[in-house]
Design a protein around this nucleic acid. Structure first.
Lengths: 171, 171
DNA sequence: GATTTGCGTTGCTAATTGCTACCTATCGTG
DNA sequence: CACGATAGGTAGCAATTAGCAACGCAAATC
C-alpha cells in the first residue's frame, strides 16, 4: 500500500465541485425532483415544495442559466411559463435516485409507498450502484484511481511507491 | 397518460429531503470525497479543501452526528483525531460518483486525468445509471411510480384515470 | 371594466458562511 | 522541565444567502 492518492491539490479540477456549483444550492435537488414528477409551472413548484417565492424564482433562473431546465412561455396562455428539464437535467436522475435511495435506506419513517418501477415489467428498479464495465457490482474496496496512461494495464504490484491512487485507504 | 404522479403533498416523506438534511449543506460532499480519498485528519481536510476552520469543524461534527463519519482519538498520539467514513458514509459513494460523473460530462475544462477503475482488471468503471432488476439500463421514460400493491402486476392499460404515477410527464 | 391568475420583484429580518485571531492539550527536544 | 511546534478546535465579526410578507404587472376571464 501507500500507492498514490488522487491529487487533492487539484481538488477543484474535478466534476464534483462543478456539479455542486448549481446542485449544491439549497432546494436545487428538490426542484429537480419535482420536475421529474411532471411539475412544470412556478405556482406548482411553489405549492409542492413550500419554498419562498423569491428563492424559487432565483433557483429556477439559475437552473435555466446552467442548462438544467429550460424556460418557455406558452403561446396559448402567455401568462404561463413552462419549466422543463433538459437532457442535461434528465442526466441528473441517477444522482438524484442514488441520493434518495440512500436517504430512504437510512432515514426514519420514510414510507417508500410508491415504488419506482420499470414500466416494462412493473418490477422495482435496482439499487443505484457502482459497476465494472462488464456489469459486475463493485464496492468501495474494488476501486482504484489510475492515470489514463495506465488504464487496462496489469496491476503493477510494486513499482515506485506513491505511484497509483488508492481508495483502499478506506480500510 | 394522465396516470397518477407521485404524491407531492408528502414531498417530505421521501428519502431525498432526508439525504439532503446533511449532504445538502455546503462542503459536505467535498468532505466526503476527501474522505473517500484517504484523508483522515482535520488539518488534512483543511489544507485539501480550502474550507474555513470553523465550518470544517461544524461540518465534521454534523457528519459524525449523522453517523456518516466516526470520530476517534488516536491512542499513540492523543492530539490526533481520526475521522473515518462509516458504512453509512461509504454507501454514499454511488451518489457522489453519479454527481461527479455528471459534473465531468457537462463541466468545462475538467481533466479527468486519474480515472476511477476496477482494481480487478484496471478498466474504468461504468457510468452510474438506472438499471432494471435484471440489469437492463433504463432511461427516464422507462420508469413509473407504482403503489407497492401493484408492483409486478401487468400494465393496467386504462383502468381509472389518475391511478398510477408517471414519469412520462417528462415528455 | 373589474377581477383573477401566473410570475415575478422589493424590502426587511434571520440564518449561514467565511475570515482572522485566539485557545488548549499534547508531543518532541535540549 | 521549559520550550516551541503540532493538532484540533472556539470566538468575534463581516459578508453572503435564505425566508417572509407585501407589492407590481401583464395577460386572461367574467
Amino acid at each position: 500500500m501507500g500507492k498514490l492518492r488522487e491529487p487533492l491539490n487539484d481538488m477543484q479540477n474535478c466534476g464534483l465541485p462543478a456539479a455542486l456549483e448549481v446542485m449544491g444550492e439549497r432546494w436545487s435537488f428538490m426542484i429537480l425532483r419535482a420536475g421529474f414528477n411532471g411539475l412544470h409551472h412556478f405556482e406548482e413548484y411553489l405549492g409542492a415544495l413550500g419554498i419562498a417565492r423569491n428563492i424559487l424564482s432565483n433557483r429556477l433562473a439559475r437552473l435555466v442559466e446552467h442548462g438544467i431546465m429550460k424556460r418557455e412561455a406558452l403561446p396559448e396562455d402567455r401568462r404561463k411559463i413552462e419549466y422543463r428539464l433538459t437532457a442535461k437535467g434528465l442526466d441528473l436522475l441517477p444522482a438524484m435516485l442514488a441520493l434518495r435511495q440512500w436517504g430512504e435506506k437510512y432515514g426514519e419513517g420514510i414510507p417508500s409507498n410508491p415504488v419506482l418501477c420499470d414500466e416494462r415489467d412493473g418490477q422495482p428498479i435496482a439499487l443505484i450502484g457502482i459497476h465494472a464495465h462488464d456489469g459486475r457490482v463493485l464496492g468501495p474496496m474494488d476501486l482504484e484511481w489510475r492515470d489514463v496512461a495506465d488504464v487496462g494495464k496489469a496491476v503493477v504490484e510494486d513499482g515506485d511507491e506513491e505511484v497509483r491512487p488508492q481508495l483502499s485507504a478506506l480500510r
